[in-house]
Amino acid sequence: MSAVVQPYADELAPGAVLPTVVRNASRVQLFLYSAATWNPHRIHYDVDYARFEGHPDIIVHGPLQGAWLSQYVTDWAGPAGRMRSLQWQNRASALPERDYEFHGRVIAIDGDLVTLEVWEQDPDGNVLMPGEAVVQLPRRDRG
């Protein structure tokens, strides 16, 4: 984790860009995530079986990418931030040992509620996972 910076709702404006974060899953991480979530689906650890189902390799769990998106939002929101909602679509599969970028920008601010457009893309700019989050943030003008 990087140094803790607390954003404030009244110091943001629509269009503000969140810092980009890169994630890259090792095969070991995929195995551990399967274990920690009690998920025995073979496409996440058995290359031969994944190919039989038409995938080029084992694939990253859709919900793991969702958890990365969740972490992208909560890390940005800081200790006083509270994520109120998060939605995403898994459009394409991600592979292990590859970089994926998480991006975001502020699209609306209403009181202490900040709506973010967030997404995961590959280094070529193809969006794998578009999403949206609502985060409750503190305001400076309310002390």
């Binding site: 859709g62 109120r84 898994n90």
Partner: peptide, 15 residues
């Protein structure tokens, strides 16, 4: 033939 995970929509009401 098969079902893929298509995404999720969460509401977090309380920690």
């Amino acid at each position: 033939a098969r079902i893929m995970f298509g995404g999720e929509e969460w509401d977090f009401v309380a920690p």
